[in-house]
């Protein structure tokens, strides 16, 4: 197989905490559905802080997952969204996982309401794992060979604990 296959890690496969590869495969699939066969130059992704996804790893595995697809060579731009919960009982809003400090502090989360100590909450922000937009290279925009039928499809929220 041509290319630095080993340098970039396995094309697919299990390993310690490399589930970013599985996620990267899903992101490539979403971009492919949207691109309508056109080459993709940029994929923009939003990752909430409550997701167990390290965007830096996602970058790395995106390159591997994109190989042989319309996303090959595309840049991935990611944005981290803050975590914010709202208490179902008293409507207090709080961040259960303040900014990572790369120390043990990073692990100090609290999903119980600081106001009334209720354990029931809704996620306002932080559960996102979204493909926000893509840039496609259109050789002739007048031809109307635009992005596929999936483009502009109604977004649905990423699965997560959210309501239960």
């Amino acid at each position: 197989m041509a290319g630095p296959e080993t340098a970039a890690g396995p094309r697919r496969g299990p390993g310690p905490d490399v589930h970013e590869l599985s996620i990267a495969n899903e992101i490539v699939a979403v971009a492919e559905r949207t691109a309508g066969g056109l080459p993709v130059a940029v994929v923009r992704v939003k990752v909430g802080r409550l997701r167990q996804v390290v965007p830096e790893y996602l970058d790395f595995y995106f390159e591997a997952a994109a190989r042989g697809t319309v996303c090959e060579g595309a840049a991935m731009e990611w944005e981290r969204l803050p975590s914010l919960l709202r208490c179902d009982q008293c409507a207090t809003e709080w961040d259960p996982a303040p900014a990572p400090a790369r120390t043990e502090d990073e692990l100090l989360v609290d999903f119980r309401c600081p106001g009334c100590r209720s354990g029931l909450h809704s996620v306002v922000s932080g559960d996102e794992l979204l493909v926000e937009s893509i840039d496609v290279e259109d050789p002739d925009p007048q031809q109307g060979r635009g992005p596929g039928p999936e483009a502009g499809r109604k977004a649905s929220p990423a699965p997560g604990k959210g309501g239960g």
């Binding site: 899903e26 971009a31 940029v42 979204l130 926000e132 840039d135 496609v136 992005p147 483009a151 649905s156």
Partner: peptide, 17 residues
């Protein structure tokens, strides 16, 4: 070559869902 931005706003795991 013309570059077009296409809004997606799909969850990466929507297909699985």
């Amino acid at each position: 070559m013309h570059r077009t931005t296409v809004k997606v706003a799909d969850g990466a795991l929507d297909a699985n869902q």
